[in-house]
Structures are given as structure tokens and as C-alpha cells.
Amino acid sequence: MGYWLGAYALLAGVSPLQAQPSVPPAELVQRAIAAAATQFGEEPTQITVAKVQPRVWSDGCLGLGGLRPNCPERLTPGWEITLTNPNAPYPQQWVYRTNQSGSLLLWDAAGSQMIGTLIQRPQRLAPDDQPPALPESAIFRVIRQTTLDRPPQTTLLFRDGRIVQETPTQRGDTLSRTLRTISPALVTEFTTLLEERRFQRFDGIDFVAPSTTVPVASNIISTPTATVRIAEANEYRLASDLVAVLRAWEMLIERGQLPKKP
């Protein structure tokens, strides 16, 4: 087999294949994990390696070039790295292809199990479902509605770093408590994340599918310039940018931290 691979390489005008190590360098695996975390809004610490296999790709595009004329016609040794999140409530696998040096890292969409990252078809948010404007100095708000017979719970982030939770009581007033106060640097970092993830482009979108069955728990998420509604059960089907915002918000509330950038 090695003879024929070398002969093929010589006929194609390239040098014979070098010996392929059984495992890739650790930093290359970490690059694949960082790529998956960024691409799909996952926490890098939650991503594990399911499988690593040495491969010899059919061309310089790692077999993913299709009919592209600019793909070098040479056998390219490398690896296939399969990643997963074992703690996710839905099955998923991300497959990446790499060359031997690690200078090329490509996502294999066809080889990946993308059940967890299917983009849900959105609707337009009905005028009656639009929430009131944000309070003054609030920069982010989540209104969580679990069932129709229970009042919604509202959590807000203010410019001074306060994260405040508001819950209507049976007496008709509102119980307000400060969950935590984050630093000005974290406030700036979170608003920057909203800009980088282009949250404003989701304005007026409703990801809660119409249903005649039992109502699902939903969240109406707002900034001063955008409002979007999502169903909690379908968070895994949202666009990766929106998932990244949701997970950053959860970390702010639970730990007063934001995900580390890869």
C-alpha cells in the first residue's frame, strides 16, 4: 500500500508521503476544541475528544474541496478529530479534518452529527407579545414565562453592574432582589459580546413555534435596540451566536463570570 501511495504522489508531481504519527500534537487538538467552541457557542471545558484517527486526504483541501479547481492534487496526510459534549441534553458530534502540520483545520459538516445545532425556522414576534421598553439604565433583560397561570420572572442587568430579579407577588406588587453586582469591566465585556455576536439582527424574531398543546417555557430577551423570544426546550436549535449570548448570560448570573475567549 505504501508503495502505491508513494507512486501516486510521484505521478502527481509531489513528494512521497512522510510517516504519519499515530496521534496529533496536543496543541492541534486544542485548536479543534477552540474552533468548535467558537463556532457552536459551546464551553471549551465541556468539549471532549471522542475519537482521533490518522487519515490520508485525497487532496490539499482535505477531501472537502469538491470540484474546486484550486485544490492541490496531492495526497495529504493528517487527522480526523471527532469532538463531543457529553453533558449536552442532545446528541451531537463535531468532526474536524486537519493536515499533518496543523496549518489547515476544516470542519466536516457532512461527517458531523448536527442535531444539536439545527437552526430553528423563526417567526415574527407578534405585536401583542412585545414586552415593555427596558427600564432606564437597563442594558439587558430576560423575561421568563413558565406557564400561563404563573406570573413571569424578570431578570435585568443595569449599567452599574447590578443583576436584579423581579417577581410579581399575589398581592399585585413586585418583589425585587439583587442577585449579584458585576464589575464595570464585565459589563463592558458583555455589551461587547452582544455587538460581536450581532444580537441586534435577531430583533423581532420569535423562535417559539405556534402550538395548540401545553405551553412551553419561554424567554423574551431584550436590549435597548432588540427583542427576541425563544423556547427553553429548543435552545439547542438556535443560531450559535444566540446560544453564545445565552450561555454568557447564564454564567453572569450563576458565577459572575463570562466564558473565556479561545
Rank of each mutant, 00 (worst) to 15 (best):
L242P: 06
Y90E: 06
D173W: 04
V216Q: 12
R177S: 15
Q153S: 11
M1H: 02
P16F: 08
V95L: 05
A248R: 04
L64F: 04
A26N: 14
I81A: 09
G60S: 14
R144K: 13
I81L: 04
P21L: 07
S101R: 07
L75M: 04
G2N: 14
L83F: 02
I143E: 07
D59N: 03
A7E: 07
A36F: 08
P168I: 03
T48C: 03
C71E: 04
Y3S: 13
A239C: 03
T45N: 15
I47V: 07
Q113C: 08
E250V: 14
R229H: 03
R247M: 01
D129H: 02
E73K: 15
T223P: 00
L246M: 13
T212G: 08
I119S: 07
A36N: 10
Q200T: 08
K51S: 15
I33L: 05
M114R: 12
A248L: 01
T82A: 07
L10C: 10
L28A: 11
I119E: 13
G172Y: 06
D206W: 03
P210L: 07
R68S: 11
K51R: 15
R141N: 01
I220W: 02
L106P: 00
P151A: 15
P77L: 07
Q100M: 09
L242S: 02
E250P: 12
A35D: 14
R229Y: 02
T38D: 13
M1I: 11
F140R: 01
L106F: 04
S58L: 14
V216D: 12
E42I: 06
A248F: 05
V245P: 02
T45L: 13
P21G: 13
P135A: 11
R74D: 04
G2E: 14
D241S: 13
V187S: 00
R74K: 11
L156S: 15
T146D: 14
P24Y: 07
G111K: 08
D59Y: 09
E166L: 15
V56D: 05
D203A: 15
R201C: 02
T155D: 10
T225M: 10
